Amino acid sequence: MGSRGPALPQLVLSDVERQTLEGWSRRRSTAQALALRARIVLACAEGLSNMDVVRQLRVSPPTVGKWRRRFVEHRLDGLADEPRPGAARTITDEHVERVITATLEQAPPNNDSHWSTRSMATAMGMSQSAISRIWRAFELKPHLVQTWKLSTDPWFVDKVRDVVGLYLDPPATAMVLCVDEKSGMQALDRTAPTLPIMPTTPARRTHDYVRHGTTSLFAALDIATGTVISQHQRRHRHQEFLRFLKTIDANTPPELDLHLVCDNYATYKTPEIKTWLIRHPRFHLHFTPTSGSWLNLVERWFAELTNRKLRRSAHRSIAELETDVNAWVAAWNDNPKPFVWTKTADEILDNLARYCQRINDSRH
């Protein structure tokens, strides 16, 4: 009795091919279509017939026959997808280069501040969707602007190492407190009551408001525990800061030295403050660099206060605002969460050096 069906092409794998196919079939990052083709070829290389592979991998007979044949003819390259038929490409590399060059180096002809997809499409004679695809591919976002500020402090490096050293390796018998003030906190009241949240509708409030005055909040964040010592002051002169220093002195263990991380605010350096610090030698002030308030961890706590309390609150008086903030601070201190600093001074300085190098070499 003769053999049934056409003779199968012989399929023998080299060691390199077998390792490659096994890797394709196992790796999670491999496309599932390519992984299936690799498993088909591996099964065929074990001497199985096409129908045996069909039953084992639960695929159709034409699929097994196609990839067996493609591998025998073209080896590993045969498992890749062939170019699909379709319309010829209309946007060439030269078109893409012109769009990118114009985006980076030219201003819009209509005196706009930045390019839009419509204005670029008009200037290039291309469709708006084509411009959008090119910008997405190269991550160009002309509508966005980021702000940045480099410190001009001549002692920038020393101050960074000093402050970051306190965060990463605080003294064993001392407290490290990040001190600053949130000045100009406004007591704002909406001109109509805020409407509550409902299904499919967010909470709503009027865009206009009435001001009822401002206050300042002095805060000292304990980096070890996350607790905060706070005090409201209607002004922010050196007298108010001195009053807050006395509050810190009264609310911390007297046997501990206190290392205070402060910014370069002028009121912290007045003769009255210096005299008081000399009389209280357990206080040690460490100053962040000029334009370096991001080094002060209490700024991160102020962000929590703004996002979780101030931004969506309404107050009819300064006293009401201060009472509300005091209640929020008390709730925070009931369950404090310290902020953990992770970057070393060298990492910060290296990152800044790379950024300066990049903007200096950009030629823009």
Rank of each mutant, 00 (worst) to 15 (best):
A43N: 04
C44F: 01
A45F: 00
E46S: 04
E46L: 02
L48C: 03
L48G: 02
L48M: 04
M51D: 07
M51Y: 02
D52C: 11
V54P: 00
R55N: 14
L57T: 01
L57N: 02
L57C: 00
R58D: 11
V59W: 10
V59E: 01
T63Q: 10
T63D: 00
T63C: 05
V64E: 03
V64P: 00
K66M: 08
K66A: 11
K66G: 01
R68Y: 04
R69S: 12
R70G: 07
R70T: 05
R70M: 05
V72Q: 13
V72K: 13
E73V: 13
H74D: 15
R75I: 03
L76H: 05
L79N: 02
L79E: 06
L79P: 00
L79Y: 02
A80K: 07
A80T: 06
D81T: 04
P83N: 10
P83F: 10
P83W: 04
R84L: 15
P85R: 10
P85G: 06
G86R: 11
A87M: 07
A88G: 15
R89Y: 03
T90D: 13
T90F: 11
I91Y: 09
I91Q: 02
D93E: 05
E94M: 09
E94S: 14
H95T: 08
H95W: 09
V96S: 01
V96Q: 08
E97V: 10
E97I: 03
R98D: 06
R98E: 07
R98P: 14
R98H: 15
R98S: 10
V99G: 04
T101R: 12
T101W: 11
T103W: 01
T103F: 01
T103M: 00
L104G: 13
Q106C: 09
P108M: 13
P109D: 02
N110T: 05
N110C: 09
N110A: 14
D112C: 02
S113K: 12
H114N: 09
S116E: 03
T117Q: 09
T117Y: 05
R118W: 13
S119Y: 01
S119F: 02
S119K: 06
S119C: 04
M120C: 01
M120D: 00
A123C: 10
A123V: 10
M124T: 08
M124E: 11
M124R: 03
M126V: 07
S127G: 09
A130W: 10
I131P: 00
S132I: 05
S132N: 12
R133M: 12
I134K: 02
I134A: 00
I134D: 01
I134H: 02
W135C: 14
R136V: 15
R136K: 04
F138I: 05
F138G: 05
F138P: 06
F138E: 14
F138K: 04
L140Q: 08
K141Y: 05
K141T: 15
P142M: 13
P142K: 15
H143T: 14
T147G: 03
W148S: 07
W148I: 11
L150C: 11
L150M: 14
D153P: 02
D153A: 03
P154H: 15
P154T: 05
P154W: 06
W155Q: 08
V157Q: 12
D158H: 08
D158G: 14
V160S: 14
V160A: 12
V160W: 04
R161G: 01
R161E: 13
D162N: 15
D162M: 10
V163Q: 07
V164K: 10
V164H: 11
G165Y: 04
G165H: 13
